[in-house]
Design a protein around this nucleic acid. Structure first.
Lengths: 115, 115
DNA sequence: CTGCATCCTCCGGGATACTG
DNA sequence: CAGTATCCCGGAGGATGCAG
């Protein structure tokens, strides 16, 4: 198993690179953070909150996140259509990790200002 | 300041997206992990350890990592040239974070197998 | 040994229009 | 409302050769 505390094996598949593929790309973090902050959200609501994202990218990114098990899609059989998205428990466990990533970058930039 | 524990502000510049830009791309994690595991390493040694990387990508990626303050380049004024690379303290602080990312992906995949 | 210059390919991502 | 279909472009990344 993968023991936390180990160094990256630097072999394929590198688990860290796998993680970066899951949350990489231009929009995934934005979507995850939005769903985490505001909870369950509908498609068009999400589109309004995440500025400048196109339908193409929102739809394909949501599909990828769902396939990777990071978000859940709930479809209500109504006319007009009604679909809701929310993060999974696995994705919730990711939040503190990416949060510490943000803190790390903050400190990195603070130290650069001193130069 | 950026307080750990906060949600991602989902505004530009998102600190998490900034972090992903610093360590994203095809080779950065590989290089960081290699330098972290093996310590100070010369250019060609690095090229041998990181399989399939071209000179173009190794050189440009190393330069980016150096500009971002993640690695240090030490040049010895010799003929033939002798250059050594190692991670900075700031980069060392990143290791446990990306390590927990790896652990997170591992558990994500384990849970998928049960389906 | 440690790179840089050049050229090329592929695909992430955007614009626009259309649909059940 | 919640997406698909289609076309397109720029930039990340690869191959090869040259240089100090």
């Amino acid at each position: 198993m993968f023991k936390s505390g180990n160094q990256c094996p630097c072999v394929d598949p590198c688990p860290i690179s796998s993680a970066l593929r899951l949350i990489g790309g231009k929009w995934k973090i934005r979507i995850i953070c939005s769903l985490n902050t505001d909870g369950t959200t509908r498609y068009n609501e999400l589109k309004r909150k995440i500025n400048d994202i196109s339908n193409t990218m929102l739809a394909t990114t949501l599909k990828e996140l769902e396939e990777d098990g990071l978000i859940v899609r709930t479809q209500f059989m109504e006319i007009p259509p009604h679909v809701e998205y929310s993060i999974t428990d696995a994705c919730a466990e990711l939040i503190p990790i990416i949060d510490s990533l943000g803190a790390w970058v903050y400190h990195l930039n603070e130290n650069k200002k001193k130069d």
